[in-house]
Each structure stands twice: as C-alpha cells, then as structure tokens.
Design a binder for these strands. Structure first.
Lengths: 192, 192
DNA sequence: ACAAATCTGAAATGTATGTTTTAGATTAAT
DNA sequence: ATTAATCTAAAACATACATTTCAGATTTGT
C-alpha cells in the first residue's frame, strides 16, 4: 500500500563512505554526507538512521567488501607463497595508486577507545584478514615454500604490521620507491 | 607597564595535548581544551591563538620532545645494535604501558591531505627518527654487528614501519604477547 | 479510483561550535 | 599615586551542527 524508497541505498552508502574516507568520522558533517549521497536528511534518518548508524553501515560495507575480495582472490591460488606475495603486491598497489588511504586503519586510529561498535567491526575485519593470511602461511610452510624459524602466527602478524606501516610512510613521504623496496625486502625474508 | 601572563603556557599546552591525544583534532572542542588547560578562551586567543595554532603548538611540543628524548638516549649508547634493540624495546613499552597511542601516527591518519602545516611537522619528526635510526643501522653494519643483504636505508624504513603496525595491532587486539613476539622476531632478523 | 502508507523536500529545531567583545581587575613603569 | 598597558572572566556572537517536524507528493494494493 505504500511507496518505495527512491534512492539506491547501496550507492548512497558508497558515497557516504567516500566522504568519511576523506574527512574521517568527526570531520565529516551531515551536510557533507547528504550532499554527496544526494538525498535529504529526512530520507537518511528514515531509512538508515543517524550519523553513527550511517558510519557503521559504511564500515560494515567496507569490511565485507574486503572479505569478499580476499575470498575471490583465494579461489585462483596456485601456490600459497604466490598468494602471499600477491597479497603483498596488492597492498602496495592500493597504497600507491588509490586516492584514499585504508579506511580501516584511519578509523582505528581515530576512534580507538571511543567507539566500541565500530572497533568491534574493525576487529572482525582484522581477524578475518589474519586468519586468511595465516592459512596461506601455514600451507606455505607445510609445502616448504617458506623456510622460517618463526611460527606461522608470528609471520602473519608481521606481514600485516608492515602493511600498516607502509600506509603511514606513504602518507608522509609519498615515496613509491620506499614502499616497493620494503615490500621486496619483506618478501625476500621468507622466499628466496 | 603591563601585566604578565598568569598561566603557565607550557603546562597549558601539555594539557591541551592530552585532550587532542584522546579525542583527535576534530573530536576536541575548544571547551574541552580550555577546561583541561584551566584558562579562559579569551586568554587562549590572546596568547596562543585559535584552535589550529594551539594544535600546531601541541604537535610541535610533542615532536620536539621525542627528538630530545632520542638524543638523550643516544648519548649513553654502548653498541649501535644495542641502541637499536633499545629503541625497539622502548617502542614496545610505550605501546603496552602508556595510556594513549602515538599522537604522531594518530594525527597522520586523521589529517593526511587536509592540513599541510601539521603534516610538515610530522614529516620533520619522521625524518628525524629516520636519520637517527639510519645512523645507528649504518654504524651497526660497519661494525659488523648486523649482517644483512639489504641496505641500511631499507632496514631503517622497515623497523619504523613495524612500529606503526604494532600500534594498530595493540589498539585492535590489546594482546601484549603478540607485540612482544613481533618485536622479538624483528630483532632476530638482524641479530642472532 | 480510492485510500492507506510512507517517502521526499524544505524549513525549523535546539544545541554545540569556534571566536570576539566587553568591562573590570591587575600589574609595571613613571 | 598615577598612568598606561594588558591580562582575565563572563557573557555575547554568529555560525555550523545533528536532528526533527510537517505538509505535500507519490506509490502500492484493493
């Protein structure tokens, strides 16, 4: 008996995400958001909710998107080691050629300790990536593609830590060579 | 012929820094700040300036403080390698036992691309740390305390990248063991 | 075609924001 | 002691903010 929502919610969330990505949670105003989403604030409040709920939706989308992407990549794995180096190179490419820096990292540092809901989502994302990479590292060790004294867990944490560091480095120095060298060195530590 | 400033500017800056540290630049309001600094906003505007100038002062203080600290440490260096492992362990202790996460990293991700003044300060800080550590790595290589295929530059960038990653890891997982293991593994890669 | 439902747009809400003004208190030099 | 400077405190400022209201447009099932 009733009218349907006019705007494409998924696309609107996508636009909102881009605003948060650029300005951060506190830096983005509702006007910035509704303008980018091209909807009126009443529509936003009637469908998605307030600013915080909108942000949670954006982060959820971002996080789930990354999980899907990772799963898709994993299907065409030849060797575990190649999958790992593939992930590392993907990370390098994202850092060097995408406009924004990782939304998950940015949000982690902005909302640490102040927003439990969002932090829970980020933890979920982090743990997924961790498990995903851990699985690859374990397989690579089993198949003797990787030779290492450290356990798979440590190697996994180590690789992920480096990703974060590269993001910061590139924000500050904007030096692609630096990132590429670090990636090369990281890879050289378990495959040569 | 005139009255002097009543409040201790250094202490006030310190208090303001703590607020920014907790809430970020956009998250901290002038009322949060003046309340913590225990001064009236008119005094603040008459002496230090507006919110942005206050923030620049805070970051400058933070950054210079770190530089002094590093220089102080360096005076009592026995071996370059020990100085390096000392820095790594200091970083671990800061992550595990200090209340706030690194203000420089937090700010880098919050204000990347939106605040050139602050970014310049952070770049200065980053380059100081880089040169400081690079110098130690070079000496350690000369003195054959470190054996590595990679150049000193890469090793240096690599260590610093890990610091950032550990911060993020600890915010998300709050797992001290994880950080300690990564530090141990990092150290093991050039000294065994 | 009707009627109930609910979405949309513009304006209004109240609060919080960063900043400025004002008046008076305090100080230092003469 | 007087004068000139300038600091302090409280209140006032305008603007920006997140959010709500309301009237009217639109759509769906009957």
């Amino acid at each position: 008996m009733a009218r349907n929502v006019e705007f494409d919610e998924e696309k609107a969330i996508q636009k909102a995400m881009e605003v948060f990505w650029k300005k951060g949670y506190n830096g983005a105003s509702m006007r910035d958001l509704t303008e980018a989403m091209q909807i009126n604030s009443s529509s936003l409040y009637n469908t998605i909710g307030d600013k915080h709920q909108l942000f949670v939706r954006c982060i959820t989308n971002y996080v789930h998107g990354r999980m899907k992407e990772a799963s898709a990549h994993s299907s065409k794995i030849k060797s575990p080691l190649k999958a790992i180096t593939g992930m590392i190179n993907d990370c390098v490419n994202t850092i060097l050629y995408s406009d924004n820096h990782c939304l998950a990292i940015k949000t982690t540092f902005e909302l640490a300790g102040t927003d439990p809901d969002v932090m829970a989502l980020l933890r979920e994302d982090s743990e997924f990536t961790h498990e995903f990479l851990l699985n690859l590292v374990q397989k690579a060790i089993e198949q003797k593609e990787i030779v290492t004294k450290a356990d798979a867990e440590t190697i996994t944490n180590f690789i992920i830590s480096n990703f974060t560091g590269w993001h910061e480095s590139y924000i500050i120095h904007k030096d692609p060579v630096r990132i590429k060298k670090m990636a090369k060195y990281l890879i050289s530590q378990f495959s040569e």
